[in-house]
Amino acid sequence: MSLSSELLQYLLSGLTMGGIYALVALGFVIIHNVTGIINFAQGEFVMLGAMFMVTLVNAGVPAAGALVIAVILVMIVVGLIEFGAIRTAKKASPLTLVIITIGLSTAIKGIALLIWGTNPYKLEPFTKGGPIHIGGATIIPQSLWVIGTTVLVLALTFFIFEYTYWGKALRACVVNKFAARLMGINPQRMSLLAFVFSAALAALAGIVIAPITYVTYDMGLMLGLKGFVAAVLGGLSSTPGAVIGGLALGIMESMGAGLLSSGYKDGIAFIILLLVLFLKPGGLFGTSGTKRV
């Protein structure tokens, strides 16, 4: 394989993982913007989506129906979590809230371990067919599904935020929580909405990536962390930033793993993260302004 086709190959696999990171990162950004919370349990929502999907498909539910049910199930679970844990602790300090979401993530992972065990599950690709060749590189059909879903979901998210009542209310909460409240928007309901919406994004990400990576109870950790890295690269409060951050992270990781060392693949993401944080503490697209006391 020549270098250029090798690079194209890394670019394509990078875009696939990058799409997943972007979806997870978007969830981080939405929750953070509306509630100020960094939700370390985001990765577990990804895992739950994939697990529900596999279970439903294995139980004989057709794939399309299973997808819808799995996403709705994750939304319900996350809604209950928001209601039970996050809302009760709303007045806690940011440090406490971070620790709470870490605890939630550990608990969800543990429960998944009890239900599904440690064995990896396999999900059939959405469409059958061999790999597709593009200019010396190959891409599996499921990768196209991942990229297509990412694009579709991003478009849908954009539409929801720009044109629907609930999307506008969420944005109002981001701009000025107090003023939004004066306008009759209930911030508690917005927090629930943000969590449930992010859960749907995460669950979708988990479902489309499942045929490529296998499904295990601990798949959420790395996906969640890298989604967070992508969100931070994008500045943590910018939605386009999260998407670009996700894609950039996916591509850099795949290039680094291919050209340098695959064992260090997981390390690369965090080295990039530390470099960006040190050189530009507000993220690539964020405003690193001063904080008001």
């Binding site: 844990a85 620790i99 709470i100 605890g103 939630l104 550990t106 608990a107 992972k109 371990l113 440690t118």
Partner: peptide, 19 residues
């Protein structure tokens, strides 16, 4: 249950204590 079930308990304790 395998060897790592204790993480459920860790998680729940952490959440309850923090709240």
């Amino acid at each position: 249950a395998g060897g790592e079930y204790e993480i459920v308990v860790y998680g729940i304790i952490l959440v309850v204590i923090m709240i």
